[in-house]
Design a protein around this nucleic acid. Structure first.
Lengths: 197, 197, 197, 197
DNA sequence: ACGGTCGGGACAGCCCGTTGAT
DNA sequence: ATCAACGGGCTGTCCCGACCGT
């Protein structure tokens, strides 16, 4: 069973990358197998559920990967700084990629929100996992759970929207501006003294 | 000949409505003419540029319409309250439509950000017009122009992202939470006394 | 209106010819458009119902054509001789075509008998029309209606089965043998003296 | 290793059953292994010749089985009554199965008559074996060999065609009508007194 | 011998966005 | 101002090897 080649993963990675830039309907299966260097027959071997199953797993996968990135950045500093860093990092990556690599699932999320419930749910799960990650960072820092939920939602929403604007306007200013303001909002949150540690 | 305009507008309206829910690639021309009650041949008569031209004009049109809505809401109160109202109104409309009617161009904006520059530009123009509207409201209220730009961008980004999250998670809480926090951020903005008026 | 090219008819003729030799599932749409010299896009223009609609109309068309042939042969002599002639003619045509051109709809009828009811019904209508033609010939000749129905059914069944056997065994003997015996059965049918006329 | 035979037979039985209802091209290998509860790998182990070999053996197998049934029915009475019984029995079975279970190989025979000679030959062999069975019954009964061949061919052809019509028209009347007339034709055949035995 | 995973094109039927002629 | 007509592209499934595990 280590005999399983990495074809399946290559397929998922190619799918995730193309979805990030072109969305769900804009990406054809032909393009995926072409980009991911996988043969046609393999696709329906690994994903008998077709495009939808492939998409669901790709979403899940890139969601986890992005979550790890988020955790890393948040672990590097206190939440306000971490959030600011995350926005800044995203701005850099976005610009470096020619404004192509934004949130890996935002486009798919919007496209599928009212089409296929399976994919909508997959995107929802990803967003929930990101929110949970932020909430943990905030509560660890002393923010009250009730407040932390709202703040995390706000931060994520702002990040998504700022990325959207940055991609469309082709300028990083929305990401930097919103990063700063979101960091301030977090910094202003009432919190009980973080014990000590 | 002003009667020909009718078909043209019906076509644009149908396009805008379908784009809002299904995005660009997810909407077929057949579906548009079916939904908009226009004959097939008319489409390429009014829009010789094909789907792209039709999309560009539809984006522009729904952008203007949404801008008027924004202006109305902002004119009804001071900016913090106006922004809060706009988020709340959007949340209601979103929920009432089964989480289908969010920002009319967000999906298209993400889909086309790195595909066709014509449509990206059309979306960018719409966003710019919305930003200008917010900026006017803020500066009229006494916010410094430099600050107003950042605040407007932040508010719009947050609105877009909150809508995205609300649609995917099927709950209005992102819109309400972010509306409140955004209103607070605006309220906290330093401003010079509004002259008098 | 003479402006409609004959593409539609060519499509139907090609379909009928291929169905006769290869059946329904064995014939691809690609093959049809290739064989019938029609462009791909035309197919779904003329037959929006897809393969099924195309098949239904092709069945109907070749059914009518075959009915006219049957009428002609039966009109040429009294029923026993006419039936014998029809079997003999079919045997000749079958052999001349390399045992390819048998009953134009038999294969499709068997394939679709328990799959798609639309096509089954189309085949049933064709068979009914052939039966009606035979019955008319028999009653005109003086056979009692009740008897005529049974005899016609028997003759048609025998023709179908004999064609099947001839094609599979690659010999015309089933058609000639059954033609003779069927003619005898018809000749032996009690009939009231054909008035005179 | 007589246990291996089990899988092989299940495969053949599933194939035969599906072919009877859907024909050759209409039946996929996936469906066969699904229906016959056999693993994928086994298929090409037992039938390295692929679908064609599997089909040939399935045809042969169901041909033999049907031959035994025919023998049994013919052995139960004199040929005219036996033939009438066989038609009647078939009519009952056909109706009971929702007009699905007709001749087990007729559809395949028509489909493959001009496609793959291997399968055409397999079907031809089956028909020959059935004819031989009928001929034996007839000659045992005293019909001259030359006449017996023609009569048997006629009876089989009529049976096949009547089944076809019954399936398509969804009524057993063709089978019952033709059964009666065929029995009469056999009864009318000149024969030398059956010796005695 | 037998079972199974994985890989490999070819092609299925369907629908897309577009255009020439009217 | 309209529509018949057009190719190309979509997703999905076909039947089939090769290479592993027993």
């Amino acid at each position: 069973m280590p005999r399983t080649t990495d074809t399946r993963k290559r397929l998922l990675d190619a799918t995730a990358e193309l979805f990030r830039r072109q969305g769900y309907t804009g990406t054809g299966l032909k393009q995926i197998v072409g980009h991911g260097a996988a043969p046609w027959g393999s696709l329906y071997h690994f994903f008998p559920g077709g495009k939808e199953q492939l998409a669901a797993e790709a979403i899940e996968r890139s969601g986890r990967r992005y979550q790890r990135l988020l955790q890393m950045v948040l672990a590097g500093a206190d939440p306000p700084s971490g959030i600011r860093d995350f926005f800044r990092l995203s701005a850099q990556a976005l610009e470096a990629s020619g404004y192509a690599d934004g949130c890996p699932i935002a486009t798919v999320a919007l496209e599928t929100a009212n089409r296929t419930d399976t994919l909508r749910q997959a995107c929802a799960n990803v967003f929930q996992s990101w929110l949970a990650t932020i909430i943990v960072a905030l509560t660890d820092w002393g923010v009250q759970p009730a407040q932390a939920g709202q703040l995390a939602t706000h931060a994520l929403a702002t990040y998504e929207g700022a990325t959207l604007l940055s991609r469309t306007l082709r300028t990083t200013s929305p990401l930097t501006a919103s990063g700063e303001l979101t960091a301030q909002a977090v910094a202003a949150a009432p919190r009980q003294p973080p014990a000590n540690t």
